[in-house]
Design a protein around this nucleic acid. Structure first.
Lengths: 247, 247
DNA sequence: ACCCAAAAGGGGCATAATCGCGATATTTAC
DNA sequence: GTAAATATCGCGATTATGCCCCTTTTGGGT
């Protein structure tokens, strides 16, 4: 049986609604006379649909209640109204109600509107879950692309048997990866980027070191360590200038 | 001015509607007394909204007209009805009308219903274009993935005795499945996808964690837990860079 | 909605790796 | 030949990592 929550502060209207609904086979789980109560009742009874008097006076009006429902507890809702000024209308339409009934209500109209609202809600839910599926699909793809570090950046060859993958930022000698530290890697990247020309000290310091900077000797030490890790002698020195890679 | 098409075969009702609408500032571009005419009028006048008598007698009834509108010429439409049996109701709700008015209509109700319908239609249109954007986004990613042939190699071997099933997302050591948590699995997937190169911290965070992100320490802890579950030492560290799998 | 167990996050500290710098040897440029 | 530039090393400082523990968050089951 379809569970209906009635939110209406006029007792007479509320009872009329209740009777009319019950006669048509609906179950009125509760009647709330204000928005706060309504929120609680929704949590407790988990109704299938709510009929909301748009002109509730206390604490929060019907429109705010509808916004709460949209955000926190999706549920189809139908507005009940006695009259309607333009301001209220423009607010009400922003909540995209599932139906709208002008008092005094007609029982048949009530039934029809509820049925339509239930149907639309069901369909929208379906559509939303489809959309969510698509979204998570898309995210997975994005991650896959990211994981593979998809890049059309080139692989540069140098020395004799060296390969540097610009995308990965890694260096290989005869297809063997060379394990380097962060700064060593950075320096190699710089040398590769400048393949064919000399990297001077200042350039190296600016590129490899951030903020603090370093001395020329730091660069020399770095080169020394790097040379120890590279099987062959590919890092050449241009005396008085800097370093370069053998092509 | 908002252009309204009235589809109504009872002349008296039609004229009443027209007058009421015009008094409220709408422009009634045409009145059709049957569905076929209505279809043509829609093409000619391109109305903003249609009011459809649900009980049209000739050729095609209002419901079928609504279906035509949904499929061929999107437009918000509101049903008008004098009475409603259950069969008609169940058909009508499947077309998800933008509004529903019981005759005899109340002018204020008419206005309100039209405003709500127009608003909802506009919002739905926006949402749909967002969805379409997402879909085409996704398609492009898919193309990229296929172009780079990323989704190949269902089973990857590494370490010495490790096997990772890309499809299942499961990892085995000597044919023994290793039970891992969600994040552990995600990290392994990333390592496998990057087999042969280093996964840096930033990449790990982006891939394994969603939105919220994580700190480097989270990654380290994750690696630590993972290493506890793997019988041998296959996850290597590249100091200052990240982690990689032993091939 | 509630509870409980598993999973995840993050702090702290010990250990390990990296880095910077100075001292000294070696090479290079002229 | 000599001064400047560079290579080489070792040691202490700095930084990164491993490891463990405790707290918070998740997620499944009733």
């Amino acid at each position: 049986m379809i569970k209906v929550l009635v939110v209406e502060d006029d007792e007479v209207t509320a009872m009329n609604l209740k009777m009319s609904l019950e006669k048509q086979g609906y179950e009125v789980v509760s009647i709330a006379d204000n928005a706060v109560t309504a929120r609680n009742k929704i949590k407790i009874y988990n109704p299938d649909i709510a009929l909301i008097d748009i002109g509730l006076q206390k604490t929060m009006d019907g429109i705010e209640l509808a916004q709460f429902i949209r955000e926190k507890n999706p549920l189809p809702f139908i507005y009940l109204t006695a009259h309607s000024d333009n301001e209220m209308l423009s607010k009400a339409k922003k909540t995209e109600p599932y139906g709208y009934i002008v008092k005094p209500f007609d029982p048949v109209n009530l039934h029809t509107t509820i049925q339509m609202a239930l149907y639309r809600f069901k369909e929208e839910k379906k559509r939303n879950s489809n959309i969510n599926e698509l979204m998570s699909d898309r995210e997975e793809l994005e991650k896959l692309v990211y994981a593979k570090k998809l890049s059309d950046k080139p692989i540069v060859e140098f020395g004799n048997g060296y390969r540097h993958d610009t995308g990965l930022g890694e260096t290989f000698y005869e297809n063997q990866k060379i394990k380097l530290t962060k700064k060593e890697n950075a320096f190699i990247r710089l040398l590769v980027a400048q393949l064919g020309s000399v990297v001077d000290f200042e350039q190296a310091i600016n590129y490899v070191w951030d903020t603090k900077g370093a001395t020329d000797n730091s660069v020399r030490t770095l080169v020394w360590r790097l040379r120890n890790k590279l099987p062959t002698d590919v890092i050449k020195n241009a005396s008085g200038v800097g370093y370069y890679l053998e092509e």
